[in-house]
Design a protein around this nucleic acid. Structure first.
Lengths: 207, 207, 207, 207
DNA sequence: CATGAATGAGTGTTCATTCAT
DNA sequence: AATGAATGAACACTCATTCAT
């Protein structure tokens, strides 16, 4: 009886703690996405989160750790929805499209987070770099593998897979950045964005 | 007589001033490209330039203004080599390739400057943004115009010109960034880089 | 009947409370002796004591008060074993030696506590000062009294009792500090330490 | 002509710089001696010195470095006036007395500095420790050497040189501390202080 | 023109203490 | 009685910018 009481308390405390952490992460996303990592101070974050200075350091080891968590979070979101394309399976290009479509969803469902991840280029910091590189390395591997396999199956052209992979990532990144930051559209036609990216990536410009 | 003397002096002084300014800009390129805008201090720049603190502020209004000048410089370099593609002229795709080829030259001839421009994403600052947007707007216009014209001439497919333009710029940018920062190659095969970018942009992935 | 019940409860509660207090004091001794007053945080103390933050403030008014209690504790230990030397009694110098011997025992039986008291010099804080001064004042009085009485009985030389007392205290303190902190010996030969201190204090350097 | 002008300027600048540094050191002595290392903030120091925050860091690497400099300064003062006692020379005990007398002068001529050095016990910090240990090691060596040599010449008693040396240093330290902090005397009778210390150290208490 | 000493607002971080549960 | 999440004042330190020389 008492144990369940204690457990209940502990559970509630744990839930509250998690919720608070989430709140801070959300506030940080907004703050970082608005002004970038360097220009955002801890004061900005705690003001946005409505907490005190000390409380922030109760939940995060520091500014770097917070930022790292955000990058990690975004990387997980993206990596969760990417599926290896099977060129021998049914409708391989359809599989590619579905991957793009799901990434579009992740990005527009987590706008601030996506902006944070896209805004800062590699080169910020050792540990941030490694997180970003983990994400980009993952994407790279997926895409490059698909390109090579697709070429061997005769589904796509022989191309310099490395360069094309890089270009694809950059292209997709830029399109999102445009939609999210430079010229934000509240409710973008996700289908259209995905289709455009897909066509650009797959069909090229020649008629 | 005295006027010519003064003019001579003034001219010499002006030349010296310009040379000094150039030196600072060059030093700043190296500094910013190595560590990024935020991590580079004015001390880094003046140490690299071999000038005193005060002198720096004699030539530039401040850190932001210096950075702005660098962006402006790069934008001019790029904008100078881009030529409007005439779909009715001889070998229109060749014209596109030549544009890409010339951009490749600019980037690899001004590595530090290019890194500075590519490293910091839009969003640093109001005025930096406007400079970068001017550059990107220019590129955008060129490419988008070519796409639309090309489509109307039946040379290229009907695509969402806006999105594809953005993707192209992002793709090119990313490829350069990879070559310049992440995995730098001292003497890249410019021809090969240009050709890969060209093929990727124009031919797409389908066989 | 109910009263005795209440009394029993109260007594048991009081005992528990005292035990808890003791535990915290012991943990604090270890913590303070290891890292000094300033470098030791309340977190260090409560971690060492295995209690929660709030509990600590239930037993002590704060960090200063805790420290004060430790100093007080040490002062009591020392003051308990010092006995007034009777120059007219049997073997007066033996009495001095026995005092030193007992102090040696107290110090080595309460190493951590001794280190705490010796480490921080007078000047930390108003109230800490007064506690330390109480201890030193007591020692001072004992020693100075013995010196004066001894001189009047012709047992010891005429000296500036105030200065010599101070020097004696400092000398003893330093020797202990050396043994406890700088060059700690797990099982020092207490007899030898006491004898050295005694000879130094009493016999001087002349042959 | 111009060179001498430049040299003159540089010399004046250098002199001014040195003077400023001295001012800060003096202010820091007062501040640290009043409240101790930990309780003294950089704000205290710069307020006392009448300079701005930034200026402080122009002259010192930080709080630790400043403190280190003070300890070093005191160590040099002391070490400069200590002379090796030659037991075969004229009046060996007189030589000891002269050493003590000179140390008394140094201490009372640099009260604040002496308090800073005496207040903080070994254990503050790695580098501070090493500086303090250098000073104490030096004193230790001087005194221990004199004790051993003196004993071999039959001038002083056979004693445990290590312990006695420690006790002497502690005794002297405490006496100074008393005069400087606990019960400060504006114009102490330096001769009397030196003589008391000397008698205590050399003659002991027996008649 | 050129200098570099001086400035002070701003940064990320710590920690003794409080108080609702 | 016991807890530990929350607080915010305080800290050491940085750096873009100014200005007397």
């Amino acid at each position: 009886m008492k144990d369940t009481l204690i457990d209940g308390r502990a559970r509630r405390a744990e839930a509250k703690r998690r919720a608070r952490r989430e709140e801070i992460l959300t506030a940080a996303q907004r703050a970082f996405s608005k002004r970038g990592y360097h220009a955002t101070s801890i004061s900005d974050v705690i003001d946005a989160a409505g907490i005190s200075r000390g409380t922030f350091y109760l939940y995060f080891d520091g500014k770097d750790a917070l930022f790292l968590d955000l990058i990690e979070l975004f990387a997980q979101h993206i990596m969760r929805v990417i599926e290896v394309v099977d060129p021998g399976g049914p409708d391989p290009t359809g599989q590619i499209y579905q991957n793009i479509r799901r990434v579009v969803d992740v990005v527009f469902d987590h706008r601030d987070l996506a902006v944070v991840a896209f805004r800062e280029t590699v080169g910020l910091d050792q540990s941030v770099d490694s997180k970003l590189n983990k994400l980009y390395g993952f994407l790279r591997e997926m895409i490059e593998g698909a390109l090579l396999k697709g070429a061997s199956w005769g589904i796509i052209r022989q191309v310099n897979a490395r360069i094309v992979t890089t270009a694809l990532i950059g292209g997709i990144r830029e399109v999102f950045y445009q939609y999210l930051v430079v010229d934000p559209v509240t409710y973008p036609d996700r289908e259209a964005v995905a289709m455009s990216l897909f066509e650009f990536a797959v069909k090229g410009l020649l008629p």
